[in-house]
Amino acid sequence: MMIVDALSWVLLVGGSLLCVVGGLGLLRLPDVYTRAHAAGINDTLGSWAILLGLMLQAGLGLVTVKLAMIGLFMALVGPVSSHALLKAAYAHGVRVQSSDEEPADVD
């Protein structure tokens, strides 16, 4: 029981640290495209670590199933919204800074 508890604390604290790092990235990185990668940290490992930590606290049961479904939903939806966001930005003509090549337009 001690080990499970300790593991869940590590996951909770590590996940929230990753989230803070992602938020820091939102501020520090130079343009929309790079910032979307930072938000990707929050969407994937940051939130999964926190949800996993909560699962270990909850033990087997309906609560754990609900947490798993939230994690699954985030995994399915995160890439879709960041893809839609960057595609809209690209179609709108936001430039990619320091790009080597400029492929044809996206409509």
């Binding site: 990753l18 990235g25 520090r28 343009d31 940290i41 800074q97 320091s98 790009s99 090549e101």
Partner: peptide, 19 residues
């Protein structure tokens, strides 16, 4: 994830953003 996190907390983020 760990790669990108290391990049963000590094002293000056050295990104090479390209398509």
């Amino acid at each position: 994830n760990l790669d990108v996190a290391r990049l963000i907390v590094g002293s000056a983020p050295t990104v090479h953003s390209h398509l």
